[in-house]
Every structure is written in C-alpha cells, then in structure tokens.
Amino acid sequence: MQQLLKRLSIIKASVALEDYEIIELQISKIQSLELDNEAQSIIEQLNEHQYISAISSIDRYIDKNTGLVVYEGAQSAALKLELKMLELKLQGLSDKKMKK
C-alpha cells in the first residue's frame, strides 16, 4: 500500500511538471502491484489522459489511505536507510582491519 501511495504522489507531482514520461513509468510500475477497484479506476483515468479527474481521485485515495500507517512507513524507511549506512560503515572498518 505504501508503495502505491508514494507512486501516486509521484504521478501527481509529474502532472504538475507536465512530465509524461515519468507518469507512464509510474503507471507501469503500479500495474504490477495488487490494486483495489479505486486504484484501478485512477490508473484507467490516467491511461485515458483524464488528468483533472485523476488528480482529484489521487487526492481522495491518498487522504483515505493515510494516517498512522504512513508515519510507520516513513519511520521504517528511515530505519532501513540507517541500517544500510551502518552496514557500509562496518564493511569499511572490516576492510580496514584486514589490511593491517
């Protein structure tokens, strides 16, 4: 769900930027996800180039599906990034120790 919400936000920003290529890329990535009827309707609107209705639908969909879950998702992403950075630091220290 979080990935879908983030991709819909990217599409919304891409419409504002008039960046058709990014819209198409995000649509193709979204279509590989499991979609409910409302999300599928948004994709159909985008495929039919009905951007005004799509943006309204995206806003409603994001509003309806956000809340505490989004905060947890953002926190999880931040923790994953911190873990990745610590792993890189550990690898660097291990390499440095092996060289001695």
Results as ranks from 00 to 15, higher is better:
Gln2Lys: 09
Gln2Ala: 02
Gln2Arg: 01
Gln3Gly: 02
Leu5Thr: 05
Leu5Pro: 00
Ile10Pro: 01
Ile10Arg: 11
Lys12Ser: 02
Ala13Arg: 15
Ser14Phe: 03
Ser14Asp: 01
Val15Leu: 02
Val15Trp: 00
Ala16Lys: 04
Ala16Gly: 13
Leu17Thr: 10
Glu18Tyr: 07
Asp19Arg: 07
Tyr20Cys: 14
Tyr20Asn: 11
Tyr20Met: 11
Ile22Pro: 00
Ile22Met: 14
Glu24Gly: 07
Leu25Asn: 15
Leu25Glu: 13
Leu25Trp: 07
Leu25Ala: 14
Gln26Glu: 08
Gln26Leu: 14
Ile27Asn: 00
Ile27Phe: 03
Gln31Ile: 12
Gln31Leu: 12
Gln31Ala: 04
Ser32Lys: 14
Leu33Phe: 09
Leu33His: 02
Glu34Arg: 10
Leu35Ser: 01
Leu35Asn: 03
Leu35Ile: 06
Leu35His: 13
Leu35Met: 01
Asp36His: 02
Asp36Asn: 15
Asp36Ala: 13
Asp36Tyr: 05
Asn37Pro: 03
Glu38Cys: 00
Glu38Ser: 02
Ala39Ile: 10
Ala39Tyr: 00
Gln40Asp: 12
Gln40Met: 01
Gln40His: 00
Ser41Ile: 06
Ile42Lys: 00
Ile43Asn: 00
Glu44Trp: 08
Glu44Asn: 09
Gln45Lys: 15
Gln45Arg: 15
Glu48Met: 15
His49Cys: 13
His49Phe: 14
His49Ala: 10
His49Asp: 08
Gln50Trp: 01
Gln50Cys: 06
Gln50Glu: 09
Tyr51Trp: 04
Tyr51Gln: 06
Ile52Pro: 02
Ser53Cys: 11
Ser53Tyr: 04
Ala54Ile: 06
Ile55Pro: 02
Ser56Gln: 05
Ser56Gly: 12
Ser57Met: 05
Ser57Ile: 03
Ile58Val: 04
Asp59Met: 02
Arg60Tyr: 12
Arg60Ala: 11
Tyr61Val: 10
Ile62Leu: 09
Asp63Tyr: 05
Lys64Met: 09
Asn65Ile: 03
Asn65Thr: 06
Asn65Gly: 08
Asn65Pro: 09
Thr66His: 07
Gly67Met: 01
Gly67Val: 00
Gly67His: 06
Gly67Phe: 07
Leu68Thr: 06
Leu68Ser: 07
Leu68Gln: 03
Val69Ala: 05
Val70Asp: 04
Val70Cys: 02
Tyr71Leu: 03
Tyr71Thr: 09
Tyr71Pro: 07
Glu72Ala: 01
Glu72Leu: 12
Glu72Tyr: 12
Gly73Arg: 09
Ala74Trp: 15
Ala74Gln: 15
Gln75Trp: 12
Gln75Val: 10
Ser76Gly: 12
Ala77Gln: 02
Ala77Asp: 13
Ala78Asn: 08
Leu79Arg: 12
Leu79Glu: 06
Leu79Asp: 04
Leu79Lys: 05
Leu79Tyr: 05
Lys80Trp: 06
Leu81Val: 11
Leu81Arg: 08
Glu82Phe: 15
Glu82Val: 14
Lys84Asn: 10
Met85Pro: 05
Leu86Ser: 12
Glu87Leu: 11
Glu87His: 11
Glu87Gly: 06
Lys89Met: 09
Leu90Phe: 05
Leu90Val: 07
Gln91His: 07
Leu93Thr: 01
Leu93Ser: 07
Leu93Phe: 05
Ser94Tyr: 12
Ser94Trp: 14
Ser94Arg: 15
Asp95Lys: 15
Asp95His: 14
Asp95Glu: 10
Lys97Arg: 13
Lys97Ile: 11
Met98Lys: 15
Met98Phe: 05
Met98Ser: 13
Lys99Asn: 06
Lys100Pro: 01
Lys100Leu: 09
